[in-house]
């Protein structure tokens, strides 16, 4: 029987259930006003994809290929193969704290309801209080050591949909070395991005698809199935870049948190605008959430995009704890033509 990992679960639609059964008293503001999802962007506001944004060390190859867009029109795309390891770092992690006295410096992150938390030992020790559920106990009460999936077998057992009870109450982390024999490389993956974005008539769903690829070669993944992870009393720890490893996608991001802890900063634009860090799968650039003054744009559309005179149409990432980068695709995404089959080379 084929093992179901959490990432494939994203494609199954399970997250539709994630809002059920809350015991949280936080206010939910209910509104029924529909917004206009039509897209109105001038041609002059659409810039060609610039592959020079990518860190060369992150790349295996870039080539231009024929592709078919989601509107069924033929086009050209960049076929970009990345090595699956962040080119701006020498190592990833830390993820799980080893003991309940560990500080933020020796631990990663976890998010909940829009907030990114330091996954300190103290946080682990207080999960029962945090989630108001006494079944949480992720550490040995005598030694203070945190239960960590520190083998390939245990990490893969805890990264499935139906986690066996013996792996409940674990902080889950997988070593990228399990999936690559080459230091500084991860799971190779290939992205197909239109050479010039084509604006859709109405915004396209991200659903369970990849959101994009960072210029350092890391996958921007769709929303993490936090509800499923938590239901097994596990924490799928992130590092300071809101990234973690699973057996299918390798190292991937679920948020943007540049400049915090071990996560490298990115440069602001010369005019103080947020910095660019990724291409979305439709070929529009994703910039950081805040500008140099710490402000966020107030005119973002439902995809979290807007237009300015310098950059044309572009996106701004959501906050690091929001389990999302953008809300949807303003442009058409691409699929490979038959003779350009997408390539994925785990562990090469």
């Amino acid at each position: 029987m084929k093992t179901e990992y959490i990432i494939p679960l994203l494609f199954s639609g399970t997250l539709a259930l994630a809002g059920c059964g809350s015991s949280d008293d936080s206010e939910v503001v209910d509104t029924t006003d529909d917004s206009d999802s039509s897209v109105d962007i001038e041609d002059d506001d659409v810039a060609d994809v610039d592959t020079s944004y990518f860190d060369l060390a992150s790349l295996d190859s870039i080539e231009v290929v024929e592709c078919t867009l989601t509107n069924n029109e033929s086009s050209t795309c960049y076929q970009i193969t990345v090595k699956g390891f962040p080119a701006d770092r020498s190592e990833i992690g830390p993820f799980c704290p080893e003991v309940i006295t560990a500080t933020a410096e020796d631990a990663g992150k976890w998010f909940d309801d829009g907030v990114l938390y330091d996954l300190t030992g103290e946080f682990i020790a207080n999960l029962d209080e945090f989630y108001n559920d006494n079944n949480w106990l992720l550490y040995d009460e005598e030694s203070g050591e945190v239960n960590i999936t520190d083998t390939q077998t245990s990490c893969e057992a805890a990264a499935v949909v139906d986690v066996a009870e013996e792996y409940h109450n674990y902080c889950v982390q997988c070593d990228l070395d399990y999936y690559s024999d080459v230091e500084g490389e991860g799971i190779y993956s290939t992205y197909l991005i239109p050479t010039t974005p084509v604006v859709r008539d109405s915004a396209g769903d991200i659903d369970g698809e990849n959101v994009g690829v960072a210029f350092n070669g890391v996958n921007l993944a769709a929303a993490a199935p936090a509800e499923v992870i938590l239901s097994a009393y596990t924490i799928a720890a992130f590092d300071d870049c809101v990234g973690h490893v699973n057996p299918v996608a390798g190292y991937h991001y679920h948020g943007a948190n540049h400049g915090d802890g071990d996560c490298p900063a990115i440069a602001f634009e010369s005019d103080g605008h947020g910095g660019a860090f990724a291409y979305a799968m439709d070929g529009f650039v994703i910039y950081s959430m805040l500008d140099e003054e710490g402000n966020e744009a107030s005119d973002l559309d439902e995809c979290r995009g807007h237009t300015d005179d310098v950059r044309g149409y572009h996106y701004h990432s959501a906050g690091p704890g929001e389990n999302a980068f953008i809300g949807c695709f303003t442009g058409e995404t691409a699929s490979a033509d038959d003779d350009n089959e997408m390539d994925e080379r785990p562990g090469r």
Partner: peptide
């Protein structure tokens, strides 16, 4: 996935909304 939806765990608000 019988346990996924009704356990009352976290990160629910963006979905509940």
């Amino acid at each position: 996935l019988p346990v996924a939806a009704h356990e009352g765990h976290g990160d629910e608000l963006p979905w509940e909304a």
